[in-house]
Write a protein that binds this DNA or RNA. Structure first.
Lengths: 243, 243
DNA sequence: CTGACCCTAACGCTGCGTGACGGTTT
DNA sequence: AAAACCGTCACGCAGCGTTAGGGTCA
């Protein structure tokens, strides 16, 4: 009548492993139906059904604790929450794909420098040129040489500026406030100081601001999408007022 | 001249933590430029640039060992490989999103049973009906009752059939071969035995085969996309020959 | 006697976060 | 004398895979 199976048997039936079953038992997610005098675990048909539910939910990407809540009958919005998480994950991966593709294309065209590092240097120029081809190729060479020759002090200041941007963004400051506007001014100042950069203009500055958000590699410098958005807001406001 | 920074300072400059820097040092990815007599770690501008590269690549989703290969100058196709992996990940998540959405919709319509478990029972019918509305609502009720009343022996046979499918698929058998065709016959036989199922036809059988591949939840039963594809091939061939 | 199974530990993997405890101060 | 930093352990996390060592036999 009441069929029951050993741990290996039920594992095969459901398409998993005995190790996983012991784990589910250990964390209380799926205790064996019965435990023999010799310590062997046995499972019945009800356990099989429960196991199939568990495996199904696991295939949807849910964590074991979330699965535990669901199979326990709690009607918390586990699935809806999980759906939002999945969508965020997909978006993140999409952005990574775009970035890797861009990097690979740049490498193919033998632009190793701008491809992977120095996103705080002249590369604004180089990338901008790549996107809109408004500024000539010699700008690239000039910026390249400048960065290579830059001394530690310059590099420190650049990194520090990026660091200050991240601090301001995570502190929740107002992008239009005095402090953020001062950061935007510093951003403009060092950009201006880079040889090979086109003459500073409202359009150029705003274009760079957009670029920081659009390109994952620049965004990373400013603390990701959120940070980059903050930088963009501050830079655009600065451009509108002072450029 | 040669500027150098403490571990906290360089962490702030690059936008990471001192703990991460110690970790990178431990695994040899980014050793400190210099270690003071007191044991303090110090980093110079070259280390800062290297660190920025590392963080950039990390933001692309690469693992630290892969990053190590890249910054070491090996020109193995790390990025191209990673790109393929990213795409596969995105596809997987896309399928999970679809499945979760389907499940949520089913739950809203109060179809808790078919939503989460028993993908080996009558649910073929119910889902089929949901998709094409070819078979009536009473089929759902009949199948439901049947499954609830099914004894352990029936459930075992169903799970066993799924298990045998997985074995056949992972063994690399020919879907058109004798063994796979025998499995398809068993599949048809038990489907026929479920009350509430529409009369067996070539179209119905092929439709189910497609469903197994299209719906992640069914596919899981047969060992994922690969397994389900195998099942589909075998079932379609069987339908063409015998139905 | 020998497979085929079952059991209980317990480490391994990824990339650090997070204390704990105790010195140092570029 | 206290605030900040620095250092070295070392556990924790998610979900099992994988030996290792040793009984059981539905």
């Amino acid at each position: 009548m009441e069929q029951e199976w050993s741990i290996q048997q039920i594992a095969k039936l459901a398409g998993t492993t005995s190790r996983a079953l012991r784990h589910y038992g250990d964390i209380g997610l799926l205790p064996p139906t019965r435990i023999g005098a010799n310590g062997y675990r046995y499972y019945d048909a009800a356990a099989l059904v429960r196991l199939q539910r568990i495996l199904l939910l696991r295939d949807l990407g849910l964590g074991l604790t979330a699965i535990a809540r669901i199979v326990a009958g709690e009607d918390s919005p586990v699935l809806a929450t999980h759906l939002r998480w999945l969508r965020a994950e997909r978006d993140r991966i999409d952005r990574q794909i775009t970035s890797v593709q861009t990097t690979l294309r740049a490498l193919e065209r033998r632009e190793p420098l701008m491809a992977e590092d120095m996103f705080d240097g002249f590369d604004h120029t180089a990338y901008r040129q790549e996107v809109e081809q408004n500024w000539g190729a010699e700008a690239y060479a000039a910026g390249d040489a400048w960065w290579r020759g830059a001394d530690a002090e310059v590099k420190r200041r650049i990194a520090e500026l990026a660091s200050d941007w991240r601090d301001a963004a995570s502190a929740g400051l107002d992008p239009l406030g005095t402090e953020a506007q001062e950061l935007a001014r510093r951003q403009r100042d060092w950009l201006t100081s880079v040889p090979g950069t086109p003459p500073m203009s409202k359009e150029y500055f705003v274009g760079l601001a957009e670029l920081y958000v659009a390109d994952e590699r620049f965004a990373a410098t400013y603390g990701g999408l959120e940070g980059a958005s903050f930088v963009r807001a501050a830079m655009i406001a600065f451009a509108a007022t002072y450029l």
